[in-house]
Design a protein around this nucleic acid. Structure first.
Lengths: 233, 233
DNA sequence: GCCTCATCAGTTGTCTGATGACTGCGCAAT
DNA sequence: ATTGCGCAGTCATCAGACAACTGATGAGGC
């Protein structure tokens, strides 16, 4: 008896969502009015209204005051990362590959389009990380900031958004891994700064191909590091 | 006077969401009970409940029957494309650039990892498009199917997901553009098939760099086509 | 005949009051 | 000290009413 497990409103919402998804009500159609839905599900109007509020917030329907509730075009494809998925190391690896593709392109675009301000922003972050002591304190954050600055410099809003999207997933997970296996050595940091420098120089020089190549190198090495850990675990 | 523009429930939901986002109520905290919220916003419980139903469906809070409503950990970063954004030609261009980065990488990975089945799937789609008559009938769909097959062959689930995510946005918009400016000539289709062939051959040969290069070429040309239209319009 | 506008029916939005159901806590009984 | 019970707080649901809005219809003026 798990009837009591889910609220009536959520049951109605799920049922309606399913019907819409299945095409019982076509896009643009008006779904039954509240009174009819009450009768269909044997619930009060409160419940129906809450269910519809849910669907509305999910973008499945829109309400028009005094007219009715209409099925909305399902045009909200979303790439979302659930906590479970981000927990798997293999998933993080795949995510890194995706990130590599985007960032290589971002570096290339940045080399072609970066403004003076963009360059200054990248250089600022880079300079901060040059101080190895500061870098050692929050390696993930500074590294991420560097990459984010480049994405912004690409002049492509979606790339910056993509980094915003992927950042919170990459950083904390990495910290977890880092905590269990703290192998960030001075040498590693120095190598990182070198790689960053190559990227920065290429972008500053406006050399798109070199920037792409440098970025690919940089991300490939960290990808390899993760891959090793996967094998080990 | 746009007070009547938004429903009270959505106003309350937005306000509460903002407070939560701002940290007025910390994660795990109980937010004020319904009665208090009614007083705060001078609305009825119906409105408050609908607002909370919205927040709940967005994952910002969870309700515990008989206890209270609690702020949930915000862990659902999502990259989503709204219709408004996808409508702008310039946005589509930026989206294409993002796609280029991902697909170049996907092509490279596919060259290294594609199984026999993967290759067969890609080849199947390619063969279909070789029949120029069939290709001419649904050029966007077949082109997209080809790219999707490659993303699948990359062995990276996120890349396939990314294509799923971006496909519905790219295809219909392209059709719109196409309808207003039907310049898909026989020559263009033939060129497309050639470009596809180069990609396919490189992947089949396991040559990652060549596959990347071919994919970059292919997408760059269509990117240029769109860019021209942007200038024209 | 055609246009304008008031009216009206239908529907969602909001309010109100009441009751049911669930949880956590304290208190009493053992 | 432990257990069981009841109570207060809170969310969930119900029922009914009125307000606000929309689209269509029809009457009236031109």
């Amino acid at each position: 008896m798990r009837k009591r497990r889910d609220s009536l409103a959520s049951v109605v919402a799920k049922d309606l969502a399913e019907r819409i998804e299945r095409g019982d009500y076509a896009v643009g159609d008006k779904i039954p009015i509240e009174a009819q839905l009450c009768e269909m599900f044997n619930v009060s109007r409160t419940v129906v209204r809450e269910a519809i509020a849910t669907l509305r917030s999910e973008g499945l329907v829109t309400s028009r005051h005094g007219v009715g509730v209409f099925v909305e075009e399902r045009a909200n494809p979303a790439l979302s990362i659930t906590k479970e998925a981000a927990g798997e190391l293999s998933e993080v690896l795949e995510l890194l590959e995706l990130r590599l593709g985007v960032e290589v392109e971002a570096a290339g675009l940045a080399a072609r389009r970066a403004t003076e301000d963009d360059l200054r922003a990248i250089r600022d972050v880079f300079d901060k990380a040059c101080d190895l002591d500061a870098f050692a304190e929050q390696p993930r954050e500074l590294d991420y900031a560097f990459h984010l600055a480049i994405a912004r410099a690409s002049g492509n809003g979606w790339m910056a958004k993509f980094m915003d999207f992927i950042g919170p997933v990459i950083i904390p997970r990495s910290q977890l891994l880092h905590a269990s296996q703290p192998e960030i050595t001075r040498d590693y940091l120095r190598q990182m700064v070198d790689e960053h420098r190559r990227i920065l120089d290429a972008i500053a020089a406006g050399d798109a191909v070199a920037a792409q190549e440098a970025m690919r190198m940089h991300l490939s090495t960290s990808l390899e590091r993760y891959r090793k850990r996967l094998v080990e675990s």
